[in-house]
Design a protein around this nucleic acid. Structure first.
Lengths: 127, 127
DNA sequence: GTCGGTTTTTACAAAGTTTTTACAAGTTCG
DNA sequence: CGAACTTGTAAAAACTTTGTAAAAACCGAC
């Protein structure tokens, strides 16, 4: 009867506190719906879809903002900050800063030994 | 599948305050019949028939006005406003604005989040 | 053609979102 | 330590979308 814009189905994410339904574009933290702006959602979705992987700043700027590598901006940092704020106390658990490279989302109970980037995947996110 | 629909009967909508009989094209608020113009009714009916789903502006303009995506108009906003006015105090409960995307009708006691059930909940973006 | 109601446009106002700015704080490595 | 560089942050600016009132345009019935 009706067809509203459909994306290809990506299985929802869920851990102890956070869940994301990519089809409906809903994120919920401890069963409360998060109200995210578009950019905030896009950023979170990209990070979570690559949970455990480091995503370089450049890749984030490219994918979420369609910025080329020549653009200098702090908007990514600002958005990460706002996302962290909305993730409340779990923020540091979830969104890691990889100094000099980018960010990484970690599922809630991800085993974390020490912060080393050695041997961890740094993904490229081809166009 | 189903039997071939000659007249497709759409089951009436009803919640604590609002009811709509699609066959007779009658809407009632707290048992009082609402006097809606054609466009107002079409808009309300479309929204209510997709209760819980976000309907993008474009889809509304396409379905109710037969406008293509190139047309720039504020008539949708004006109609939403008039609908809200006729929904009285329940307006904000019923018709949500999803910033940058469109509108969503929520049944009166709508569950707020997607949880276990496969319902038809929706986005959180905007607002 | 005129009337009464409906719909659309116009022209801003208001609200929401994103980006920039300017600097503080943190990290790396000599 | 300290210079060079990266990230964090608050606040302002810039930008975008939605809300609203009023006027204009439209339309069918008389």
């Amino acid at each position: 009867m009706e067809s509203l814009p459909m994306h290809n189905h990506i299985p929802p994410y869920r851990d102890e506190h956070l869940s994301i339904d990519y089809d409906q574009e809903i994120a919920a933290l401890d069963s409360e719906r998060m109200t995210l702006t578009r950019k905030e959602y896009d950023l979170l979705a990209l990070l979570v879809q690559h949970a455990g992987e480091i995503i370089p700043r450049e890749a984030l700027l490219m994918r979420v903002w369609s910025y080329g590598s020549e653009i200098r901006t702090r908007t990514l940092d600002v958005h990460v900050r706002r996302l962290r704020k909305k993730l409340g106390g779990y923020a540091d658990q979830y969104i890691e800063t990889i100094f000099g490279i980018g960010y990484r989302f970690q599922p809630f109970h991800a085993p974390r030994f020490f912060q080393s980037t050695v041997g961890k995947p740094v993904i490229a996110l081809g166009a």
